[in-house]
């Protein structure tokens, strides 16, 4: 009977392995988001400055990371960096690097858009008080932009969390990789384990992503009102 395959979770320490795999996914996503949002803020600010060269270079950077599929970025980090540049980090840090650069690229565009939609008169009234550029961004423009950025940022975070399912491609034992191992190891005894294991993974991703997505939807609705 199909539902008896649920007992696969009781075998050995399967449940704690899945949770461990989930933790790997979550910390890689979290660290990448923290680093990527910080870097993206700086890049976003630079993209609002008049310097044409900087703007062009950062635009290229954005387009590269937007167009190239994330799996290719992961391969680049995992295979090319060690071989060509002799960077020998653990795979999970390579993943953090690739994800951080991706998040920074996407977030830089969100920050740029938000800063540009703060009314021009806010900038002028800040300047008229003698604020320098740094102070203007720090105290006036970025706090106002942050409010506008929030829905798109949460959306980006949910995408990052979902995309961690690719981590198994560079041999990181994320939640999907652990799930596959469990399915294969128990194939004889529980042929239907695949349904339950992926079902659980589905629920776990849903539990993490759904609140974020709902929050973003609520904020978007609030803004358009």
């Amino acid at each position: 009977m199909a539902h008896s395959a649920i007992n696969v979770f009781l075998e050995g320490n399967n449940i704690s392995r899945i949770i461990g795999g989930l933790w790997t996914s979550v910390w890689i996503a979290a660290v990448s988001l923290v680093l990527g949002l910080a870097l993206g803020t700086i890049l976003g600010v630079l993209r609002t400055l008049p310097n044409k060269v900087i703007r062009f270079v950062l635009r290229l950077y954005l387009e590269f990371f937007r167009i190239v599929p994330t799996i290719v970025l992961l391969y680049l980090a995992y295979y090319i960096l060690p071989r060509t540049f002799h960077v020998n980090w653990p795979a999970s840090w390579m993943a953090v690097l690739a994800f951080t650069l991706w998040v920074a690229a996407e977030f830089s565009d969100i920050v740029r858009g938000a800063i540009e939609s703060v009314p021009k008169s806010q900038r002028e009234s800040g300047l008229a008080l003698g604020l320098n550029k740094m102070q203007l961004f720090r105290y006036v423009l970025l706090p106002q932009a942050a409010k506008l950025e929030l829905p798109a940022t949460i959306n980006l975070a949910t995408r990052v969390i979902k995309t961690t399912s690719l981590l198994m491609m560079i041999s990181i034992m994320d939640v999907v990789a652990v799930g596959q191992q469990i399915i294969e190891a128990n194939n004889q005894q529980y042929p239907n384990a695949v349904f339950w294991v992926y079902g659980l993974i589905f629920i776990l991703y849903f539990i993490i992503d759904y609140p974020l997505s709902a929050w973003s939807k609520r904020l978007t609705a609030k803004h358009s009102r």
Binding site: E124, S125, A128, G130, Q144
Partner: peptide, 21 residues
């Protein structure tokens, strides 16, 4: 200008208080 603006205050038609403060 940053120095001079400390000595020349300006008030605008649209007030432009900072809404985040």
């Amino acid at each position: 200008w940053q120095n001079i603006r400390q000595k020349i205050g300006m008030v605008f038609q649209s007030y432009d208080l900072f809404p985040n403060l």
